[in-house]
């Protein structure tokens, strides 16, 4: 299982968000190669802790690749760089697949030789032990998602004559779906921005749901750098889009500001379009 939640462990751990180690970093990257039988994950690890590197050399710890899709699989690595072959009969990248490295203690580890710890821990380092099978740290997370049609789509439109309302906005796992009761409401043939009002409503609905889902219990605000990358397509897209556009926090209070930030003058374009139509109608 991929672990990503920041918490206070009973000993210092090496992660990219914890300050337990003063400076050390632990990243990996993957190149994916596919043939008809296997996936090859070509792994390249950046580990700047000499303490842990030494332990790796001494084979007191090992790196374990965790592959989490529909279930979990573990693969010990031979070193910082390795290639892991996984038969296609045992892993599918059709759905979202996440990968992470864990540093596993193969025996009890004492921290006396660890000079990279933050001040507080340094004072106890000689007496600090991590038991066999414990984690000493975990890496960043890499996600693969094979491109299905909707991977980059944010909106869908549909016509449903049986709709009880005139339009309806629904959030599907991948997209914001705008249902129209009849086709005429889609303004086919008229300039596209005339539909921007619906885009705006759809975005607002989706972002509201985003806040509700990702705000910590009792919180009003979601800090985008602080939450785990969402699993579900729609929220992943919104999350990445907002991050790309430099949005740092989102709450019910700044939804409109966020829409302004992530989109390109939706309402202005709408206004210009309507004015244009008005002119041509005379």
């Amino acid at each position: 299982m991929i672990y990503k939640k920041d918490a206070n462990f009973p000993y210092p751990i090496l992660t990219n968000s914890s300050f337990d180690y003063e400076e050390s970093e632990f990243y990996f990257d993957i190149e994916l190669i596919e043939n008809s039988e296997y996936y090859q994950f070509v792994i390249e690890t950046t580990l700047t802790s000499s303490f842990i590197k030494t332990l790796l050399d001494l084979q007191k710890v090992e790196l374990i690749l965790i592959v989490q899709a529909k279930d979990n699989k573990f693969y010990p690595l031979k070193g910082l760089n390795d290639i892991i072959f996984i038969p296609k009969s045992r892993v599918s990248l059709n759905k979202r697949t996440t990968l992470q490295l864990q540093i596993r203690a193969k025996a009890q580890i004492n921290f006396s030789a660890n000079h990279e710890l933050s001040l507080f821990y340094i004072q106890f380092k000689d007496k600090m032990n991590v038991e066999k099978n414990g984690t000493l740290g975990f890496s960043n997370i890499i996600t693969f998602d094979s491109s299905n049609k909707k991977s980059y789509d944010l909106f869908e439109k549909k016509v449903d004559p049986n709709l009880l309302s005139e339009i309806k906005i629904e959030l599907s796992t991948e997209t914001i779906v705008i249902y129209y009761r009849n086709e005429e409401m889609q303004f086919a043939g008229l300039p596209h921005p005339i539909n921007n009002l619906y885009v705006y409503m759809g975005l607002r609905t989706a972002l509201q749901q985003f806040v509700l889902l990702f705000a910590e219990e009792g919180d009003e605000c979601v800090y985008l750098n602080d939450i785990n990358t969402p699993e579900e397509g729609l929220y992943l897209k919104l999350h990445q889009l907002m991050k790309q556009k430099g949005v740092e926090e989102i709450s019910m209070d700044n939804l409109d500001a966020v829409i302004y930030q992530i989109s390109d003058h939706i309402i202005t374009k709408f206004t210009h379009t309507v004015r244009g139509l008005e002119g041509s109608a005379i």
């Binding site: 462990f9 979990n72 573990f74 864990q102 596993r104 099978n133 414990g134």
Partner: peptide
């Protein structure tokens, strides 16, 4: 206990 104990990787006796 996970991942302080990497439970899925334990041997049967552990």
């Amino acid at each position: 206990s996970y991942p302080v104990i990497l439970v899925p990787m334990l041997t049967k006796e552990e």
